[in-house]
Design a binder for these strands. Structure first.
Lengths: 135, 135
DNA sequence: GGCTAAGTTGACGTAAACGTCAACTACCTT
DNA sequence: AAGGTAGTTGACGTTTACGTCAACTTAGCC
């Protein structure tokens, strides 16, 4: 099965494009993270769903649960004309920004440490080869 | 049960200190991530194990699996006098650095987007209140 | 209009990371 | 030495995020 219009993908096409399985995509839908249109019974993925899927995958790479990612996606299509929706949105955005900032601290610390481990390993090798030459 | 020497903690003390459960700590041990000494049957946690536990928790915050974290911990106590161990070590460190760097890109992108979402929400609120004044 | 490949919906299985008893054992205190 | 508090080892339960059939429709092609 292959779709006619460009920008309209079938589930296997989308799966191949993103490197995940069709099963996973259906699972995300069952969790409410995706809501593709249908052509009869067949799911049709357009630009919007592809974007959302990219956000889902990035969220996963960052270690968030699908539930977290669901809330995160809601931030994007919240109605900006509703005053209290905006306030709620701001709250969520702010707290997530704080989460990510502290995650960034962890990440930077770990990167520094690993870099230092590498330096030490390299130094140990230099020392070993220097001894071999002296021998 | 409470330990005499400072720097020597029992499992519940360590649990309280780190905010995780004793069950989790035992679980990490069963996975080989911790190897506390024993006083009889009771586990004794010293400076070394506490450091390792911090690394475990940070790894978790970064979204790594316990298996990943196990390999990561091995990097710290690899024998630096073994030449090929060092090479292996360097390989692992380098690939993990690459992982973390790409994770950092994801993180920065997400932070930028969320900040922009926040700006837009704030702008929408300004607009709404401005209209209220004009009315 | 019939075949085959692709898509769909359940139902069940699974791995990771613990939580939750249960049944003991070991300490420390009085 | 008796009792309560902590600690220990299984064993089983649970949630998340899918994988894996199985049994059916559906769609496009000749």
């Amino acid at each position: 099965m292959t779709s006619v219009m460009s920008d309209m993908l079938t589930i296997t096409e989308l799966a191949r494009e993103t490197g995940i399985t069709a099963r996973a995509i259906r699972f995300y839908e069952s969790k409410g993270l995706l809501t593709p249109r249908r052509a009869g019974t067949t799911r049709i993925y357009t630009h919007r769903e592809r974007g959302r899927l990219q956000l889902i995958l990035r969220g996963k790479r960052l270690g968030f649960s699908l539930t977290d990612i669901g809330e995160y996606l809601d931030l994007y299509d919240a109605d900006p004309t509703q005053h209290d929706q905006i306030l709620l949105l701001l709250d969520k955005v702010n707290s997530r920004i704080e989460e990510l900032k502290s995650q960034k601290v962890d990440l930077d610390d770990t990167l520094k440490e690993l870099t230092s481990v590498r330096e030490q390993a390299l130094a140990a090798m230099q020392e070993a080869s220097a001894q071999a030459i002296r021998a």
